[in-house]
Amino acid sequence: MASTTGIADTTPDVTEGVEGEDGVRRRDFINIAAVSAAGVGGLAVLLPLVSQMAPSKDVLAESTTELDISSLDVGQSIKAVFRKQPIFVRRLTPAEIEAANAVNTSSLRDPQTLEERTKPGHESVLVVMGVCTHLGCVPLGAQEGENKGEFGGYFCPCHGSHYDTAARIRKGPAPSNLVVPDYEFTSDTTLVIG
């Protein structure tokens, strides 16, 4: 600490604010380098601090659900759980399929056909998340006796969104159709969701 002001050889006097002839003193360089290194290190520390709040490995491990639909009769629905959220599987009646196909898709808020929302060869099986796209309530209609809404599909009681037989939004505040999750048929009666 004896000579706190003595530094680089190119600068004769280095009292505060005096610049060397080339405009950058060695001290400035060291200062910028040190602060930059600390800054990069500080930003690197943010990564784990932010990332730790993302889903942990055990949560991600729950991300597929296998479902047996062999006992699902025409016109019936079942509720299952996928990623801690309800999922609705419905075997549509011919009348419901007809009602869904009769709609002019261009008139819909979220235009999609029933065909696009089901798997080829299994057009009568409609698999959707039981999570209203408005603010996340569970719509009614999957269980017998529940209000199916004005379009015979699902009805969300929280804020009054009506979904049709293809679970498309038809009336109310929800912005889009009930989400069709990724799934596949591993046999005629077994679904793997996720």
Partner: peptide, 13 residues
């Protein structure tokens, strides 16, 4: 153990 094995960067924390 869940923190150490499952949580992202939990071992570090």
């Amino acid at each position: 153990e869940h923190i150490a094995r499952d949580v992202n960067w939990g071992w570090l924390m």
